[in-house]
Design a protein around this nucleic acid. Structure first.
Length: 286
DNA sequence: CGTCTTTGACCGGCGC
DNA sequence: GCGCCGGTCAAAGACG
């Protein structure tokens, strides 16, 4: 039974490894049953969300086809924030694509750090461009603006794809608190990461009753050995992650931590549930 | 020698 | 028309 639920098995093993005295079998079984229910609920929610996502994508595709008959296609623009070492002067964002730098300019709004211009060189005719500039407030944060859509796949997939966000909401240089607004357009969920390593998930803005959900990424409960990073086990605190050669393996660790975090799974489930149960105004208005 | 980066020049849009 | 500014070009240099 346990072997059919690897996440729960991993959680149980981890719990066992971190408690000096073995807990009673009954307690472990209760924990396991609770986690198994959560796991099943999350699986159900994921399936429901995928179904809804596919439906919405189909609708959007149909609407775009209608629209393209009347208007030229607008260029898709997205924006990322990447935390790097502030001492690192390079404007390199490892996003799974290969880029050729074709220009650099000092801009008026942020004269202390020049803006670099890149073109995607992974495919011969890929139209995608990106601009990378350091955040004026936090020099350790790179602001990468992508224009256009790739006509090919990434080298190893796009590790930053999850953090795709709309550029229209970003005003990073003038905001001391919110670093990166993240939008999940197809689900109507948006989220903010603030300087306290907390993601604030906000349900669709068109909702009459927005449900804010806070995900604490400081992982204060983690007892794993992150002291080597000097960052007390916080993934966001490891400022050199984007430049670090061990970044990939650490990302796996962070994902493992998150799956062990009861608050995270609960908040995630609530966010997903709210996006599914609440009818989308976009689809209703169409 | 080929590829990539750097950097000054150039171009076009926009506001006055 | 002029100046400012962001974006792009392309020659020169660096590098493997």
């Amino acid at each position: 039974m346990i072997s059919s639920c690897p996440v729960a098995l991993e959680i149980l093993m981890n719990m066992d490894a971190h408690t000096p005295t073995k807990r009673k079998v009954d307690d472990l079984q209760q924990d396991f049953l609770r986690l198994r229910k959560e796991n099943e609920a999350l699986r159900f929610l994921l399936q429901a969300m995928s179904t809804k996502c596919n439906t919405l994508e189909q609708l959007i595709r149909e609407k775009n086809i209608e629209r393209h008959d009347q208007f030229p296609v607008a260029q898709k623009t997205t924006q990322f924030l990447v935390r790097t070492d502030s001492k690192d002067n390079t404007l390199i964002v490892k996003d799974g694509y290969q880029w050729r730098k074709y220009g650099q300019k000092v801009t008026k709004d942020n004269p202390s750090s020049p803006r670099a211009y890149f073109k995607c060189s992974l495919a011969p005719r890929c139209p995608v461009k990106k601009k990378v500039q350091r955040c004026m407030v936090d020099k350790s944060v790179l602001v990468a603006t992508y224009e256009g859509e790739h006509n090919h796949d990434a080298i190893n997939g796009s590790p930053l794809g999850l953090f795709c966000c709309s550029s229209s909401t970003a005003d990073h240089n003038n905001n001391n608190n919110i670093i990166n607004p993240i939008n999940f357009p197809s689900h109507g969920i948006s989220a903010n990461i603030n300087n306290n390593d907390v993601i604030n998930i906000v349900s669709p803005s068109n909702s009459s009753r927005p449900v804010p959900i806070t995900l604490d990424l400081t992982l204060s409960g983690s007892t794993s050995n992150q002291e080597n990073n000097g960052s007390a086990g916080s993934p966001q605190n490891s400022s050199s992650c984007a430049q670090n050669i061990n970044c990939e393996s650490r990302i796996e660790d962070y994902v493992a931590y998150l799956t062990r975090d009861h608050n995270f799974t609960q908040a995630l489930a609530a966010a997903v549930a709210s996006s599914i149960t609440r009818p989308s105004a976009d689809t209703e208005n169409q």
